[in-house]
Design a protein around this nucleic acid. Structure first.
Lengths: 338, 338
DNA sequence: CCGTCAATTGGTAACGTTACCAATCGGCAA
DNA sequence: TTGCCGATTGGTAACGTTACCAATTGACGG
């Protein structure tokens, strides 16, 4: 058999010559066999099997009008299970359409995003799906992307009118906060992302609206909007819980902040610090929330579905040339009470 | 500017003609500019900017000896945060080597894995990394893969001698079980994957070895080895905890089983069922384990590092032609006591 | 028996890129 | 001044594939 080194992939010419036909007949057979005699098809397929031939998709997509079958995805943090599920949703729909995904992690880095998008376009992707970092977006302008459709997920980019899938951040945060107010809380803290993060801003707006609507004061001393990771969130929670007039409940705008706050609460319980310990409303789900020592309300959503919607939007644009205007899909969230 | 439709990507010829040079000069400029006059380089770069030109990587890799710069990854379940982190680790190292990853989800489906591998090879990937489903592996044989290097992760495939990265499943499970025995438990249940899953089998072996070594009997009534998801794990835990001689501790072979068991324990506490409730040792980490109502020992590991190691193994083979024999890297795990 | 048509097969060219070779130029030593 | 060398530039061909056109075959109706 072929040795490991120098075992170049066989070409369609080699398949053809082994089958005793022309490359065109081999090509036609591979393409479905229309207008090829069955016995020749059989010979071609036998040669394919014997040689271990795989059609070269790169050469194939070189020909004009041929799609590459690749969808480029850039997300901000693959280690976040939320984005893992998102990517899975995209992958599923892409697979249903016979496409493959090519994936890059931006780590919230603007330059990296630019680099990834360039590379994706260089690889002739049929479409792009991305969770934008939020920096300068000149590289996402239509004139830079040519005719490659783009779908944004989770976040919008200022001044960029493209198809977008979002969560109902504002409504979810509003309803979550209302549930705390309904339970009798009035002193409710907020922990979340910095306001330059699209979702951080929207979720704060929902919190703000609920508080204002019910006449509950918003005290800057118990609003912390600059935590991007768990340790920072723990510290922020600690600072507000150490106050003489500590909040009796905390709204957490995302998973990272929720985990941080709960870690701090766990520490206080272990250390025997006096309660009462605050109730939590968390945007984003996490497993075993029902086993927490304080009541946790979850504002839940389906990241995988978000990915599926993003991909669906993309394929609908690929299938339908008509230059429709940009659409936005806002997926609902569910509130899960403790 | 270019309209959305029909705005085909510009080619190097158009760049060249706009810059008033030959395609070769443009190509040389893009390749670094060796032996090209600075003023011409400047004109070429200007044309690139004006036209929004991106080099066609597919055409590029068509030329012999040119790598595609793609690494194919097939994993079993991207929604599992463990594999998300794994993919991230691979992506990081790939990016450091200037490669992109092309990702597919097998969903533990053998046929899907075959399909993905075919497609990856068709796209001329420089290498393959996969978490094998464990089915028939004829499509992974070297003679089928040509000279595309393959690295397996998490699981080994019988009869396939290739580079592999594994966790110290046996040792971790052994040490975790020993910690329960040291704490005075003797009646220790086991919940995990079916034995056809590589890691499920290895982790059971570690459990078995510890039990046998210490003379603790293994009672089939409290060994459940067929749960692949959380609900099944809950049911398995429920069955053994309902026994008259319920285990006082449970070894859980993976994250899914741990969550299921803890859900069941939470239910029993809420329902006021009499304890004592079992201690847990969990292979695989999960967040907030320290806040659980029963002591949870974690056998922890670093999926991202596993991904990095897999990619490192792959690139070392890509860089070094010498047909070394297959290597195995077994990453250590850490035990985190409650 | 001939013309026509459909089915089948093959040859050619082109997709975008770059390795290789040839041609040109300026500078410099003999 | 001539010859040579290095730097620069361009033309050609090839990578693997398939759309398109042309050629061949057999069948069938007139």
């Amino acid at each position: 058999m072929a040795t490991s080194r120098g075992a170049r992939q066989p070409t369609i010419k080699e398949v053809a010559s082994r089958a005793g036909v022309s490359p065109m007949t081999a090509s036609r057979t591979l393409a479905g066999g229309r207008n090829v005699r069955p016995d020749l098809q059989e010979r071609v397929m036998a040669a394919v099997r014997e040689l271990g031939y795989y059609r070269n998709e790169n050469a194939r997509s070189l020909r004009p009008g041929q799609p590459s079958g690749l969808i480029g995805i850039a997300i901000t943090n693959l280690a976040n299970p939320y984005y893992g599920s998102f990517a899975l949703g995209v992958e599923e729909v892409a697979a249903e359409h016979g496409r493959r995904i090519i994936l890059g992690n931006t780590g919230e880095d603007d330059a990296r995003e630019r680099q990834l998008v360039s590379d994706f376009i260089g690889r002739q992707v049929d479409g792009l799906i991305l969770v934008p970092t939020g920096g300068d977006a000149a590289h996402l302008r239509p004139e830079r992307l040519g005719d490659v459709p783009l779908v944004l997920a989770s976040r919008r980019v200022a001044g960029l009118e493209v198809d977008t899938v979002l969560l109902d951040d504002v409504g979810g945060a509003y309803r979550g906060t209302i549930s705390l107010l309904d339970a009798g809380h009035t002193r409710i803290g907020f922990i979340g992302n910095r306001s330059s993060v699209f979702t951080g801003e929207r979720r704060y707006r929902g919190y703000e609206r609920a508080m204002t609507e019910r006449g509950a004061p918003i005290d800057p001393a118990i609003v912390a909007r600059d935590q991007q990771d768990v340790p920072a969130a723990s510290l922020a929670a600690r600072a507000m819980l150490d106050l003489a007039d500590a909040p009796t409940a905390i709204f957490s705008a995302n998973n990272r902040n929720t985990i941080g706050a709960l870690r701090e609460i766990g520490r206080r319980i272990r250390d025997g610090l006096p309660g009462p310990h605050p109730s939590i409303v968390s945007f984003d789900d996490f497993e075993l929330s029902e086993l927490m020592p304080v009541p946790v309300t979850i504002i839940n959503h389906d990241a995988r579905l978000l990915g599926r919607e993003a991909a669906t939007l993309l394929f609908s644009r690929l299938d339908d040339d008509s230059a429709r205007e940009a659409r936005t899909v806002e997926l609902p969230v569910t509130i899960e009470y403790p």
